[in-house]
Design a protein around this nucleic acid. Structure first.
Lengths: 155, 155
DNA sequence: TGCTCCATGTCAGAAGTCTGACATACTGTC
DNA sequence: GACAGTATGTCAGACTTCTGACATGGAGCA
């Protein structure tokens, strides 16, 4: 039971460091979104819809890195609150294209500014080289990890 | 409501890319840990204890990037299952130093091997330059984001 | 000593997300 | 046309984590 070879050194593990960075970003985003009564998934959903109106629930789920069931719960909530709108029935297939309402756009404007301040702070603490290195290496990490079926929506 | 300046371009956002990479890693780890009946936080807790025996609940929480309340729930569960042990009362202060039991070490051995396979796959898909670039830029991101109070345990 | 401040452990309840399951609709393959 | 395979939306239930709150113990300071 004492094989040293199987242990993972957390101090030098790239996976641990990635988790640490993601955790720091998540905490910082939650800090600025909480005063607005918004969660990260909530914000992500609105931001995705602003950039690509008409996205389906499943597409939004993939873009926000949650299951389509979780996104469905959120969408029903947002629809009741009047932040998004969906047709009662699908025009074609089962896909229900979702769109932002003016109210949703208003919520997003505040949230987007708050999130931008976090991202700006993050970028301000990095050199130009570090930024492009981060972009390149993170892209490579994603590609490596996606080799087999490791989709978020795993059913 | 239509200020283009406030929107965040998800395609080029380093924050979004970081979340994407972390999500891919999380999904890959869950895929290999689920057959072992273990969650990521569960595994993280055991791995931390293996490297630094006697860690307190709060310290484990910080190391696993969850609140101390969540870690407490997990520790009570692990204690009932006989994977970790804690003294009934604190020797000094309120701190309850936690240690792995032989059973816990056994669980960790399997989990650690599984997680290592994921990390190896990730690293195998990256060049040596990308690995060191990732380490450097992620460290910089963490430092930038930690500037103000963005601790995991936020109370 | 007495006081304030901070860290820890814990309980209770709420919120978010997940897995499992089902019905339905499109796609391509024979 | 018939079929299997895949994708979507949804419901139900369970699990994990979170926020809020409280009590306790140590550290620093007047």
């Amino acid at each position: 039971m004492e094989q040293d070879g199987t242990a993972i050194d957390l101090e030098t593990s790239l996976g641990y460091l990635l988790k640490e960075a993601a955790s720091a970003l998540r905490a910082a985003m939650e800090d600025v979104l909480r005063p607005l009564g918004m969660t990260i998934t909530h914000y992500s959903c609105l931001e995705l819809l602003a950039q690509r109106p008409g996205l389906s629930g499943s597409e939004l789920a993939r873009g926000a890195f949650v299951t389509r069931q979780s996104m469905n719960t959120l969408l029903q909530h947002l629809e009741r609150e009047g932040q998004v709108s969906r047709p009662a029935e699908a025009a074609v297939g089962k896909v229900l294209p979702t769109r932002l309402t003016p109210r949703g756009r208003g919520s997003l404007a505040k949230a987007s500014a708050a999130v931008r301040s976090v991202e700006d702070r993050m970028l301000a603490g990095m050199t130009e080289t570090e930024r492009s290195d981060a972009f390149r290496s993170l892209t490579s990490m994603v590609r490596s990890l996606r080799q087999d079926g490791v989709a978020v929506d795993g059913d």
